[in-house]
Nucleic acid binder design. Structure first.
Length: 118
DNA sequence: CATCGAACCAACC
DNA sequence: GGTTGGTTCGATG
């Protein structure tokens, strides 16, 4: 069932990417520095498809303020990054203490938000 | 391990 | 109505 949102004018409409993005930002703040989460985990919490999570992050205009680099694929491979590509993404993660080996981040760095939030 | 196809869902054409 | 993504999953070589 699609998520509905109550608008200012009192109408009820399907959630837009902007609506989801607001929720997404809040979730990203929960991820501890030094660990990452997955598109999958976020998609479950938001009730949308993992691709849509990607679309949200890609549409993000302030990649450095919103920590989109802390989101990786469920198999541990990096996924994309709108600013500077995966290469730059890896760099940022390394600064935060998340290490990438053979194209994958180590499991110990991956936080399942669903579990973390209860 | 690598590749493939299908499902995913709002946006855009 | 069809295509498109910062994806995922199951099946197949």
């Amino acid at each position: 069932m699609p998520l509905l949102v109550l608008r200012e004018d009192g109408t009820l409409s399907r959630a837009s990417l902007d609506d989801y993005f607001e929720a997404l930002k809040a979730l990203l703040l929960v991820i501890p520095t030094g660990s990452v989460t997955t598109y999958k985990s976020l998609s479950k919490l938001l009730g949308i498809s993992p691709r849509l999570v990607g679309a949200l992050l890609a549409a993000n205009d302030e990649p450095l303020i919103v920590p989109c680099h802390r989101v990786v694929r469920s198999d541990g491979s990096l996924g994309g990054y709108s600013l500077g590509g995966p290469r730059f993404k890896e760099k940022i993660l390394r600064v935060e203490g998340v290490y990438v080996e053979r194209g994958r981040v180590k499991d110990d760095h991956v936080t399942d938000l669903e579990e973390l939030l209860g």
